[in-house]
Computed example of a mutant assay.
Amino acid sequence: MAPFEALYRRKCRSPIEWFDAFEVRPWGTDLLRESLDKVKQIQKNLLAAQSRQKEYADRKVLDLEFMVGKQVLLKVSPMKDKNLSYEEEPIKILDGEVCKLRSKEIASVKVQWKNRPVEEAT
């Protein structure tokens, strides 16, 4: 009895036993044809799985309806030639204070920005 069989009480499955020694294996164009058939089958399986996932996701998507007066967050990605950004310009400083730490003093100011109301000053 082999040591593996004594320890695990079953035969050892090595790669040598996976194939029949007298099996005729294809060579040349037969091997290529079989490989291409397997690749096509894998592609079919992947497309089927992808379409199943798409159907599942499509069922989960709801049609959105917006009411007048509701706030909506829109995500906009700028186009390459269009620059949709603008620069904020400070108008005046509304308030200022200095916070004292042990060894540092940190100044903070409240600034009113152009095109913004006073309530939105930072």
Rank of each mutant, 00 (worst) to 15 (best):
R9G: 02
K60M: 04
E17M: 08
R102C: 09
R116V: 05
K80G: 02
V39K: 15
F22Q: 14
L7E: 07
V24D: 04
I42M: 10
L84D: 11
R25G: 01
K54G: 02
N115Q: 11
V98D: 03
P78E: 06
L7N: 09
R116E: 05
L73Q: 12
P15A: 08
Q53S: 12
I91R: 02
A107W: 02
S35K: 09
R13A: 00
F22P: 02
Q53M: 07
Y8W: 13
S51R: 13
S108V: 08
K92T: 14
Y86R: 11
L62I: 10
E87S: 10
V39W: 04
T29D: 07
A2T: 15
K100Y: 12
L47A: 12
R13K: 07
A107T: 11
D37Q: 12
K44W: 04
V39P: 00
A57V: 09
N83E: 05
K70T: 08
V76Y: 07
L36K: 12
D30V: 05
I16Y: 10
A121R: 08
I42W: 06
V109M: 05
R9K: 15
E97P: 00
Q41E: 15
W18C: 14
L73D: 10
K92A: 09
E87W: 03
E120M: 06
K114H: 09
C12Q: 11
P15W: 10
D30L: 10
E89W: 05
S14D: 00
Q112L: 07
T122E: 04
R33C: 12
F66T: 05
F66Q: 07
E17Q: 11
K75Q: 13
E5S: 08
Y86I: 02
A49I: 06
L94H: 00
A121K: 02
E88Q: 06
E89A: 12
P3Y: 06
K110R: 09
S14K: 08
Y86C: 11
S108E: 14
D63A: 14
A49F: 04
K54E: 15
E55N: 14
D37A: 10
T122G: 11
